[in-house]
Simulated assay, not measured.
Amino acid sequence: MNEPAQNHVAGKQDWSGHQLTGKRQHALVTDIFTQSSLSGVPPRALQIYQRNLQMTAARSLTITYPVLQQMVGEQAMFILAQRLLAWAKPTTGDWAEWGGQLPSLIASSELAADHPYLAGVAQLEWAVHEAGRRRVDAFNRASLSLLTDDDPNQIVLSLQPSLVVLESAYPVQPLWQLHRQTANPDSLSTEALESIMQNRQSANYAVVYQHRNKPNAEAIDEQAFAWLQGVQQGMSLSALLDAYPGIDFAQWLAYAIEHEWINTILSQR
């Protein structure tokens, strides 16, 4: 790599050594993403920029989607990063905010034919990534008094903003969990993988949340999934209990508080 190109990459300088103006920077960014030549930067230097961008994007996806990276490999992640850059460009300087469209990209790619569960794994991993970046509020214990002082028809439960419920046709949470527990993908048990896929139900459900400053994903059953959806939709406690009589509310509430699913109880009066 020649010296002008090194300066160009490291210091936002053009090939003549002068700092890029705002217009030149904008033209350069356009060149990088469209492979055009509006900025006047020599093709060799532009190629270095483009390669660095692709490598950075691939590293970013690997950090955000570590299980997916285990499942498809480094080369496939690099190709996915290239395609995602062409489809959905970063809108901020924070790479952690980029990559949310990857599940949709995978679902429309050739990977979906032979590995239809990969899009669901990516969706779960993005939810885990987002949960780890969201704020979690301490539960308002004073709000528990509403359970005895107010009409259940007027009571609603408020979940943490980081909590997400997901539905998939494939057991993506068990697959995700198995890969997370295995440092070396080559050592994964074939029997364990086959067992997960063979024992899958017609639909699989998961809840993603942050607990003790760490994101987590947990498999839940259909009724728990529907209950959490009802809570998110603002159903009253009375309506929830009528719709899902199989839920032990006292047990669920204790678990939800312990695992930081819920931040407060509210009255609609």
Rank of each mutant, 00 (worst) to 15 (best):
E3I: 14
A5E: 14
K12W: 14
W15H: 13
W15A: 15
Q25E: 09
L28C: 04
L28R: 00
F33S: 07
P43C: 03
R51I: 00
L61F: 09
T64Y: 04
P66D: 10
Q70V: 08
F78Q: 09
L84A: 04
L85E: 08
W87M: 08
T92I: 09
A96Y: 04
E97I: 01
G100C: 01
G100Q: 01
P116S: 08
Y117V: 05
L118A: 07
L118P: 00
E130Y: 04
A131K: 06
G132F: 05
R134Y: 00
R135L: 10
D137V: 10
F139N: 05
N140A: 13
T148F: 11
Q154G: 08
I155W: 06
I155R: 06
V156G: 01
L157F: 14
L163V: 15
L163C: 10
L163R: 04
L175C: 04
W176S: 12
Q181L: 12
Q181W: 03
T190A: 15
E191R: 05
A192W: 06
L193Q: 09
M197H: 10
Q198F: 09
N199T: 11
R200P: 01
Q201A: 14
K214V: 12
Q229G: 09
G230D: 07
D248W: 04
Y255L: 10
I257V: 15
I262P: 00
N263L: 07
T264K: 14
I265M: 06
L266S: 06
Q268A: 03
